[in-house]
């Protein structure tokens, strides 16, 4: 049984313009200890999936259909209290805006200890602080910073503290949403390296979200490419990078000389993403596709298996 099984998940937001279909029929599996990277342009629904997994969609957001099975149990059917208990203990999240993820009026060490204490009432306060010390060693924050407040930290240290916090309860799954975008390249590389080591050390499963395909390539052994709320291609890293099937994946990859080569941001693909309140009936990538077929604009494309475990949502494959 996979650690996480997401099945036909659709999520939307109530907005002034109508119901915005932010995520449509997304399915994927994640094995224990595996890493899956979601990549795609801004607004394609990456964060929305992460929030839904944590059960933290904003009040105007809701899951329309589908299942999220975490260790076989559907989290969408859990009560708030059941959900609260698995949060952080079983799955933790590093949020996109990690720079503001720490409470400015509380000491960093206490904020991390709080996560430990709330999930394990048998732990004493100073035992928890000892654990926080270990976490600080692990992520490389000097121990004399334990009693500092967040504003006394540099950006990189805050990021490390947030990672330490995510590890605090030894969760099985960590969702890392653009964990390094606010940092300069050198610190970014260091922290990505650390995340990778920690993942091996603790046998973590990671869902890594980024708009930077080279980071995802570096970090994850499975890749999910998203476009306008849909997963359009999904498979093992080698498969997706060596024989991309979906025109959008190809377009993304064409901006990178080699997968492991020089990093650069996405070169925008001409055209605009479709309106998600009234999405096109056919393929959502149709307007920007390099070689659409006649049926593409009228018929929604079907999943095609490219190789075992590698699939794409395109009629031309």
């Amino acid at each position: 049984m996979a650690l996480l099984e997401v099945d036909n998940l659709s999520i939307g937001y109530n907005t002034k313009k109508g119901y915005l279909k932010a995520v449509e029929k997304v399915s994927f599996d994640l094995e224990a200890g595996a890493s899956l990277g979601f990549v795609g342009e801004s607004g394609c629904g990456k964060t929305t999936i992460g929030m839904a997994l944590m059960g933290l969609l904003p009040p105007n957001g809701s899951v329309k259909e589908g299942r999220i099975l975490f260790e076989g149990k559907n989290t969408l059917e859990m009560t708030d209290e059941e959900l609260r208990k698995i949060r952080w203990r079983e799955m933790a999240m590093i949020f996109q805006a990690a720079m503001n993820a720490l409470n400015p009026v509380q000491r960093v060490g206490n904020q991390i200890a709080e996560a430990i204490l709330v999930h394990d009432p048998s732990v004493e306060k100073d035992q928890a602080m000892d654990q926080v010390e270990n976490l600080f060693r692990l992520v490389g924050i000097p121990l004399d910073r334990l009693r500092d407040y967040p504003h006394q930290y540099s950006g990189g240290m805050k990021q490390r503290a947030v990672i330490a916090m995510a590890l605090a309860c030894r969760p099985k799954l960590i969702i890392a949403d653009e964990p390094t975008t606010a940092l300069d390249v050198i610190v970014q590389d260091q922290i990505l390296g650390e995340i990778k080591e920690l993942q091996k050390e603790f046998d973590l499963s990671i869902i890594f979200i980024s708009h930077d395909i080279s980071i995802v390539a570096h970090m994850c052994d499975h890749i999910g490419v998203m476009y306008a709320g849909q997963l359009v291609e999904c498979g093992p890293r080698e498969g997706v990078f060596e024989s991309p099937a979906h025109p959008y994946t190809k377009a993304l990859l064409s901006s990178f000389p080699t997968v492991t080569g020089k990093r650069s941001d996405l070169i925008p693909i001409p055209g605009e993403t479709p309106n998600l309140v009234v999405p096109p009936h056919g393929c959502r990538f149709c307007d920007r596709c390099s070689g659409p077929e006649a049926s593409c604009s009228t018929e929604p494309p079907q999943w095609v298996e490219i190789a075992p475990g590698h699939r794409a949502l395109c009629c031309r494959c």
Partner: peptide, 17 residues
Amino acid sequence: KEDYILTARAKGLEEKV
């Protein structure tokens, strides 16, 4: 609406806390 409230919620704290 602040991010650290989202963190607190994600940590599994009770709403009252």
